[in-house]
């Protein structure tokens, strides 16, 4: 998934290395959409290879794909960027399976990709809306740790939420 850069641009390229050794060559302008990378570039300069030991190649690739798309959308057309981004974001999260979604969220959070974190948390939140307690537990693989009776008590107090 390494990005093949076009040689005509004068944009600086950064080399990002994921935890599993996969490397990505990315335009600086794209990579610095990620707060964490931006900080590293500012602190250490951009000549070096940037190692990201907490993100594996699959998810780093996806995060960068998102950054690239947004960067392109924002330069290519001056009108309707928001529309394009919105449409594209929708596509981007639509088919993610839960596991990928969670890992991607972690990667985006680690890389401080604020907008992407927003997008993904919103997606996860949408999986909670309107669901029953049991379904929410299933979604998050959570086991109830209430003592017998405790859950009943809470349900009773909030009975109007369960009608």
């Amino acid at each position: 998934m390494s990005s093949s850069s076009t040689t005509t641009t004068t944009t600086r390229l950064l080399m990002l290395k994921a935890s599993d050794g996969v490397t990505f060559e990315v335009e600086e302008a794209v990579a610095t959409k990620l707060g964490a990378i931006n900080n590293m570039v500012e602190e250490e300069g951009s000549e070096d290879l940037i190692c990201l030991p907490n993100v594996n190649g699959k998810f780093l690739g996806m995060v960068l794909e998102w950054c690239k798309k947004h960067a392109n959308n924002n330069t290519n057309s001056d009108k309707g960027n928001d529309e394009v981004n919105k449409w594209w974001d929708k596509e981007f999260v639509m088919d993610l399976d839960q596991n990928t979604l969670y890992h991607l969220l972690m990667a985006a959070d680690y890389l401080s990709g604020t907008e992407l974190v927003d997008l993904l948390t919103e997606k996860v939140a949408s999986m909670i809306r309107g669901k029953k307690v049991e379904e929410i537990r299933e979604t998050f693989k959570i086991k109830s740790d209430f003592l017998p009776g405790q859950e009943e008590e809470i349900r009773k107090k909030n009975s109007w939420a369960f009608e």
């Binding site: 959070d109 948390t121 939140a125 669901k131 029953k132 998050f140 959570i142 909030n158």
Partner: peptide, 30 residues
Amino acid sequence: TGVTFIPFDIIEEILLRVEAYSILRCKCVC
């Protein structure tokens, strides 16, 4: 949480986006 690699502050961010109706159900989760 069950999905143990999600830190709790992200769970909080997620729940902040859930509206009151579902929030009340979320109380019973764990």
